[in-house]
Design a binder for these strands. Sequence first.
DNA 1: AATATCCGTATTTTT
DNA 2: TACGGATATT
Length: 725
Amino acid sequence: MPSLCEPLRRQGGSARPCACVMARDSRADKIERMFVNGAVDVDSNESKWAVGLNPEQRAAVYHDGSALMIVAGAGTGKTKTLAARVARLIDDGVDPDRILLLTFTRRAAQEMLDRVSAMTDRRAAARIWGGTFHAIGNRLLRAHGEAVGMSPSFTVLDPGDSSDLFGLVRNEGNYTKSVRRFPRPETLASIYSRVVNSQTSLTEVVEANFRWCIDHTDAIREISKAYTVKKRKQRVLDYDDLLLHWRGLAASPSGGEAMRNRFDHVLIDEYQDTNSIQADIVKALCSGKTQLTVVGDDAQAIYGFRAATVENMWRFATDFPGARTVTLTRNYRSTMPILDVANRLLAQSKVLVHKELASERSGGSLPRLVTCADEAFQSNWVCDEVSRMREEGIDLRDQAVLFRTGHHSAHLELELARRDIPFVKFGGLKFLEAGHIKDMLCLLRVLDNPGDELAWSRVLGSLDGVGPATVQRLFLDLGVAGDDSDAVLTRFLEGDLQVSPRSHDDIESLRSAWSDCRTVAGEPSIPLAEQFDRLSDVCRRTFPRRYEDADARLSDLDQLAVLASGYQSRSRFLTEVVLDPPERTGDLAGPPHLDDEYLTLSTVHSAKGSEWSAVYLLHAADGNLPSDMAIDDAKGLDEELRLAYVAVTRAKAQLNVTFPLRYHVRRYGSDDRHNYSQLSRFFEPIRDSFDVSSAGVAAADDQVLATDRIDLTDEVDAMLEGLWD
DNA sequence: AATATCCGTATTTTT
DNA sequence: TACGGATATT
């Protein structure tokens, strides 16, 4: 729908359209209040996306002609601005199929698209290309990869698969035998990934980030090469390959032209967390007439470990001559006392030019800093406080507990469970890592790509009476490593297999299920949901032997089947589930309870982009935040500081920072070895921005006595008991 | 050749 | 705790 500003906007970026919209501000404010109250019955002459934008946001939304970088501090309405810009483009007549919206997570993409579709034609919004770099890369490679000699039917390896493949290569050479402490498969995979993503030499990467592996550099080089060869042969791509091949496609003469003309607008969120390969892709995409918009905040760059570099932001004007920069500093999320903490944290940075955030919200109570005697006091304090806030009307959904690493919440999780406070944890273990999930996915993967060695070995190894040696022999007999992968499946289904007699039943079950599900002439014979049913039959045979809790795992498969029923094609499902696995642990634990009240537990990394009324930051102790692994390195330390910044800026009204004085040294095990810790060096200098208190510290001596009394009583009782004999 | 059992060792963050 | 690796047992 054409807005009143249409003719003026065409002139691009002038002050006049702004003035024109500003004149309607009081009405816009009223409409925004209606939005907030859930009344969305807006006058149809109003462009919904224009509602409630401040002058800087408006400038970003209306900008036209050159590349645009929006520097958006925390809570300054960057999602709103980007979504409004996309909606404006659509209303201006840009073909939504020619708009590409790249985000950091799938969740962020979905949120953005939801907001866009609320502001403009819903059907148009649904046609936008939105997703992560990896997901979009996957989609484009399947569509255009053939132009550069790629098979469109590649399989995507999840990070676990990559590690397994490294493990395979690692075992084939005799690396582990010669020397002690050879890097583990996951370590090899992360070194490799780091090399690829940072585009620096292996020697440099090992020296800078994996010093403890330095003696094995040559072996790592060999293994990495062998890993690459294996991937190519099996027609599988890992996460990094999706970016590398996309870049290759965009740079190639044949594919590049199609890429440059594919989109009219490319918009990228969280630009501070892109790496140099992603920057190359962006440059290739936007070298023609395509218009680029990026949004980012160098103060929130927290993915350096993944070779992301804020340089991409700092170099933006050089990379894209004539680019315009718009800076958003008005914070609509947090109260000023919270922003004081954020500002004072950022002022400690050695690398950032400090930008002050100013709150548009009045009032607000002082953030609290709580020194806890130990983890138990910390968990108790948080649970008490969460419940108290809930009684005061702040839903659990509007509260979150944040921490630096996944296991920092372990103790709290137990206490929450004990008190029946429901929670979900983000950023912990991925369900893809569960063995039984992999079992099922591998059954599907062989059907999808019979050249996939990893999937074959997992499936074969799960059969009764088949171990490593038999797997090896079957590989040879079937020619799994050969060239014609489809023939491999035929040989398995129809050929004579040399296996022990006790394997026959399992093999027959597998053959029968696979035959029913097999793809014939490009078309699967039965729908995906039925394929799941048939393959579950195989799992029903193998699980009881392999897993103690076979029943629970089988019912997980039912959940997975529900997830799968949303997809028509097997390969689509496999790819999506690898690129976008359910994020919350427990997603498969029971029926979906999305509407339930629950408290959010999240790593700081996974909390990026979210906000809650009340935020609790746990373990704000030196060695945890900053992590002790980053302490020697100035760059790493600065990233930890930004992590603290991201954490505190998630809070809207109530910020609580806690740390236990006494904490267990060992992550595992039940011994009582512990250390005494100090408040994080980031928070120590700004204590006076907090309301400081403690939990259990003054009463520590009493506590010890109380414990002693209990022990003593037990002893006395035990002694007395002996007397009755 | 497969499976059971025991030992020793783990460095954060995620697409 | 959990997993890889080595050794013992079926």
